[in-house]
Structures are given as structure tokens and as C-alpha cells.
């Protein structure tokens, strides 16, 4: 009896230990499986983020390039428009310089130029040009380009802004 009991006890204890080890092994297997899944998910997320970032950067580059191209096209068109308007304005001035209105405007320009010469106005040299005159003080202290073309050139930066603004309003 004593032997039989002993064997029984030993078998029971052995079965218990076997169950415990099996449970430990299962738990370890589940832990390893879970850890692998987390690792896999992290790696997948990282890969997706990297891919998304690359695509986003590529898209941004495309947008910047397209915007730059559009801006270049717009500036080129603007430049051509301004060149045409400037050329037309200059030709109009040359054509109209000989009319009564043109002559009156030239007279006003020369008179204004003379107001800046002070006492030197009395000996000023007025040299006729196609669209006005050059007015040089007798003492050579100042030389004024009192031509309609000269005025156009000096006022062109402001006029150009107005031309562009009006063109944009018409679009």
C-alpha cells in the first residue's frame, strides 16, 4: 500500500508539474505571439508613415513646381503686356507731340523745368528734341530732360503697376 500510494503521489506530482510547464510554455508562446504582433504593427506603421511622407513630399514638390510654372507664365504674360503698353504709349507720344495738345504739354514741361533753374533760368539753353526739350541751366548746374518720353520713363514704374492692376481687374 505504501508503495502504491507513493507511486500514485509521484504520478500526481509529475502530472502537476507537467501541466504547470505546459501552461508556462503556452503562456510564453502567447506572450511571444503578442510581442511579435506588436512589433509587426509598429513596423507596418513606420513603413506606412515613411511612404506617406515620401508621397506627401513628392506632392508638395509637384505643387511648388506647378505654382512656379504658373507664376512664371503669368509674369511672362505681364512682362509682354507691359512691353506692348509701353511701346504703344511711347509711339503715341511721338505721334501726338506735334499736335496742339502735345505742344501745349511740352510747353508746360519746359516752363516747369525752368522754375527749378532759379536765377540760372535767364541763361538756360533749351535744346529741342522730338517730344520736348532738354533744358540746361546757364551755369550747367542742372540738366533737365523735359521731353514727353523722358516723363514716360520716369513715371513708368507707377504707371506699370496701374496697368497690371487694371489688367487683373479685367480678368
Amino acid at each position: 500500500m505504501a508503495l502504491a500510494d507513493l507511486l500514485h503521489t509521484l504520478e500526481r506530482e509529475a502530472a502537476g508539474r507537467a501541466d504547470a510547464r505546459l501552461a508556462d510554455a503556452r503562456a510564453e508562446a502567447e506572450r511571444l505571439t503578442a510581442a511579435n504582433a506588436a512589433e509587426l504593427a509598429t513596423r507596418r506603421e513606420q513603413a506606412l508613415a515613411a511612404r506617406e511622407q515620401a508621397l506627401r513630399a513628392e506632392a508638395e514638390r509637384s505643387i511648388v513646381t506647378a505654382t512656379r510654372d504658373a507664376e512664371r507664365t503669368r509674369l511672362l504674360a505681364q512682362h509682354e503686356l507691359l512691353a506692348r503698353v509701353h511701346d504703344r504709349a511711347r509711339r503715341n507720344l511721338v505721334q501726338r507731340a506735334g499736335t496742339a495738345e502735345g505742344q501745349a504739354a511740352i510747353g508746360v514741361l519746359v516752363a516747369r523745368a525752368l522754375t527749378y533753374l532759379g536765377e540760372a533760368a535767364a541763361t538756360a539753353r533749351v535744346t529741342p528734341q522730338p517730344t520736348g526739350s532738354r533744358v540746361e541751366a546757364g551755369d550747367a548746374s542742372v540738366d533737365v530732360d523735359a521731353t514727353l518720353e523722358g516723363v514716360l520713363e520716369r513715371l513708368w514704374p507707377g504707371l506699370a503697376m496701374d496697368v497690371v492692376r487694371r489688367a487683373e481687374l479685367l480678368r
Binding site: L109, R112, A113, T115, Y116, S141, V142, V144, D145, A146, G150, V151, R154, L155
Partner: peptide
């Protein structure tokens, strides 16, 4: 007028 005619600022 001075600016329009390109008169030097000092003048």
C-alpha cells in the same frame, strides 16, 4: 513736378 521731371533731390 520735380519728381516727374527727374530734378535731383538737392535741387
Amino acid at each position: 513736378w520735380g519728381i516727374e521731371l527727374g530734378i535731383p533731390p538737392a535741387r
